[in-house]
Amino acid sequence: MSIEGVDFALRRRAEERDRISGDLLDLDSHPSYQLLEGARLTGETRRRWDEAQARAVTLWWLFDAYRGVLDRAQELRAGKPDLAALTALLTGPSVELKPENVPVEKRSLLRAAGEWITLDTVVARMDAAYRDVAAMVAAADDAWSALLPRLEQADSARRSAQDLLRDLDGGDPDLDRIGAGIDRIRAAVTADPLGSAAPGGKLGGELDGLLADLTARRGLLEQAARIRAEYGDRTRRLGARIAQVAEAENEARSIRATVLVKIASPALPALPDQSAALRNRLGALETARDRWLELVERLTELERAVDGALASARTATESMAGLIGRRDELRGRLQAYHAKVVRLGSAEDAALGELYGEARALLWTAPCDLRKATVAITAYQRAISRIGVAE
């Protein structure tokens, strides 16, 4: 090599050394690299990290050998240049890899002979080792990136739920169970991110389940906080609604009594009678005061029961009142048919008069047989049609 070629090669190698040094320092300072170094690893991550650490030791060992040759070349160039020696250092097999310099974890009891390689070969081997270590760090980083944010989300939701629980001055075994599950998954993810994030792994699905449970539990705690703030108003409203239930049940009983007098053999629904039991349940809520999580379920169930009882009483009333309505509707139809007969001059028709009288007697006699009355009106209508008095 000429002196100009030597200087160019030295500059290029110095730049290469600085770039490699920077890459190695960046790798060492990578957050996931630091986490891996400081964590108590287990499973697949431990196995691969042990391999990566061995490669990292080899990487630094090769870099030190590379740097040593380059330092010698720069010292030689600083004095009276020996172009042959400089050319040998920069282009020939100038890096000696002595068996005694091999890292302990890479040694064998069967010592191989020393090896001489070129700077380019050293760089190629460093590049391969660097890629192996960086790939392992990237895999761990990807695994942590997939799971740790969800764990942070779970922890944030848990802290929020715990704040609500403290305000309620109570305990919640379910929240404790969920928290223990999150802590266990966090420990597993921290110790073995590669195993935790492996395809088909159970931790991701388990974490999803815990997040769903936590969301539901936090919602229940929020309900409990609202109930504590609104308890007086809600129980007063419940009392008023139960009074409406009692009133609706009394109306149903009254209608039932009327139907039994006015309608023969009616098919009646069961008589609703829940207001007394609902009042007792409302009074029993006081025994659970300050146990707000328990009150969430009991108060919510009672509100549903009151709404259901009121709807049931009103439905029963409407059903029974419908029988009276049916009788009145049949009366109206009979009167309309009769008015039409009179208007068309057939009021003296004996057969029509008999049929009209029979239907009227059925409809204005208590109790009224609705089935027979319906049959009688139908017969009256057909008779009108037969003699030409169409509707």
Rank of each mutant, 00 (worst) to 15 (best):
W116L: 12
A361P: 01
L25P: 01
L295F: 07
E230N: 08
V245C: 08
E329A: 15
L168T: 05
L302N: 01
E230L: 09
L220I: 10
E16K: 01
S32G: 00
K372T: 06
L285S: 04
E115K: 13
L207I: 03
T378N: 15
E152A: 14
L165S: 10
G171E: 15
A361C: 03
E15S: 06
A73S: 11
V341Y: 04
T287C: 01
L210N: 12
S29A: 10
R77P: 03
A134D: 15
I178M: 05
A311F: 02
S29V: 07
G170A: 14
R217W: 02
S265F: 06
R236G: 02
P149V: 05
R67H: 10
S2M: 00
T378K: 14
T190F: 05
T45F: 02
D18W: 04
L41C: 10
N250S: 14
L86W: 08
A284K: 09
R111A: 14
A143N: 03
L278R: 03
A264F: 08
L36Y: 11
E247R: 14
D50Y: 04
D167K: 08
A336Y: 12
E4N: 11
T365N: 12
G345T: 13
V95D: 00
L90E: 03
T190E: 15
Y231L: 12
G200D: 06
A124K: 07
E44C: 05
N250G: 02
R77A: 15
R253D: 08
D155V: 04
L36H: 02
P193H: 05
E96D: 07
L175C: 06
G179L: 04
T118C: 00
T42K: 10
G232A: 13
E303S: 15
D208V: 02
D163P: 02
A14S: 12
L207D: 06
G353N: 09
R48Y: 03
E247N: 09
A288F: 10
Q74Y: 07
L175K: 03
T235P: 01
T378G: 14
R184H: 08
I185S: 01
G204M: 08
S319C: 00
A112T: 14
L203Y: 02
S254P: 01
K98G: 07
S385H: 06
D213L: 11
G345I: 05
L370N: 09
L83P: 00
A339C: 06
W144Y: 08
G388D: 09
S21Q: 14
D290V: 14
L299S: 05
S108I: 07
A313F: 08
D50H: 07
D141T: 01
E96Y: 05
V306I: 08
V133K: 00
I178T: 02
R158A: 13
E348M: 09
E152L: 10
E391H: 10
T91L: 11
Q162K: 09
T87S: 13
L89G: 10
L119A: 00
E222M: 07
R158T: 15
A78C: 03
R159P: 02
L362S: 06
R371M: 07
D28L: 15
L90R: 00
A309S: 13
R241G: 00
H338E: 09
A39D: 11
L344W: 05
S108A: 12
A180P: 03
